[in-house]
């Protein structure tokens, strides 16, 4: 009997402790999300209200005018499309190239398999500033060579290529560790059946790696969409800017109307947040596949 009472007591104290921790973390969570809520709130008010009645004034008007204005005055849609033109091809090419190397490394044991994988994985970790000076001049130089300075520089193609180069390493690594879990027998029977290397890749392996491809796809879409550095270096023409670097310009230009800027920021953030909530499982497994080996 007494042990049960004691047990009950222990459980009660644990319950109280948990309630305390839960409240604390809940409060913390509110603090966490507050800046976002505040930005949304700001985006729904006209700037003139804030100026004349103060920061904490009760709103006279709440509407989506700033959002319409963001589309009209900030050309948010144009920036957003630029982001898409860069992100979508970059993700697809990265996954394609990554899957090729991963396929070779995990299915055909060559002497150079491990060094190759090492080089690709290490490439992903290089600091971007270590390569950007030569890359910049190379883009200009290639542009002059083909007679169009905006061939790579100031162009989607240049951004796509540099993202592909940087992200392929991570994709290769994640995909190869996934492919190693695919039983060898599948490959062996394909080879016995006389499948060519290409068929082996395209018909046998590719359908099997859909889960990590989806996970990486979500993760890389977020990363490339969120990229700021490369867009800053390689694009100077405003009409070609992806949304993150476009936002920076707007940040300078619309300091006098930050309610409008708030709407712009929310619009820029929306795609990745929505993507995350819709495909959360993929996003998390993409990150953890790379860091913990599944």
């Amino acid at each position: 009997m007494s042990t049960i009472v004691q047990d009950q007591k222990y459980r009660n104290s644990q319950k109280r402790k948990d309630a305390f921790i839960s409240t604390f973390i809940g409060f913390f969570a509110f603090v966490w999300i507050f800046p976002i809520l505040w930005t949304i709130w700001t985006s729904l008010r006209p700037y003139s209200d804030v100026v004349s009645y103060g920061v904490f004034s009760w709103p006279k008007r709440l509407n989506f005018d700033n959002y319409f204005a963001a589309f009209k005055q900030m050309h948010i849609l144009g920036y957003f499309l630029n982001s898409l033109y860069v992100t979508i091809p970059a993700v697809i090419i990265t996954l394609f190239l990554g899957s090729l190397i991963a396929f070779i490394v995990s299915r055909y044991k060559f002497k150079f398999s491990l060094p190759l994988l090492l080089v690709f994985t290490a490439g992903n970790m290089l600091p971007a500033v270590l390569v950007y000076i030569p890359v910049f001049w190379m883009y200009i130089w290639v542009g002059d060579l083909v007679g169009n300075r905006n061939f790579l520089y100031n162009n989607y193609l240049g951004l796509i290529l540099i993202h592909v180069a940087f992200q392929t390493g991570f994709a290769t690594f994640v995909l190869s560790s996934y492919m190693k879990t695919i039983p060898k027998e599948i490959s062996e029977s394909a080879i016995v059946d006389g499948a060519s290397v290409f068929t082996h890749y395209w018909r046998v392996i590719l359908p099997l790696i859909r889960p990590p491809l989806a996970a990486l796809g979500v993760l890389m879409t977020t990363w490339i969409y969120n990229d700021f550095f490369w867009a800053l270096i390689l694009v100077s023409q405003d009409s070609k800017r992806p949304i993150t670097s476009g936002l920076r310009r707007l940040n300078g230009e619309f300091v006098t109307d930050f309610n409008l800027l708030a709407a712009g920021a929310i619009l820029a953030a929306a795609p990745t947040v929505i993507l995350f909530f819709v495909l959360r499982k993929q996003f998390i497994s993409g990150l953890t596949l790379g860091s913990t080996k599944g």
């Binding site: 993150t244 990745t272 947040v273 996003f283």
Partner: peptide, 11 residues
């Protein structure tokens, strides 16, 4: 999942 550019502006 937010870009640091957006984070800077939000803050």
């Amino acid at each position: 999942v937010l870009s640091l550019a957006v984070i800077g502006i939000i803050w």
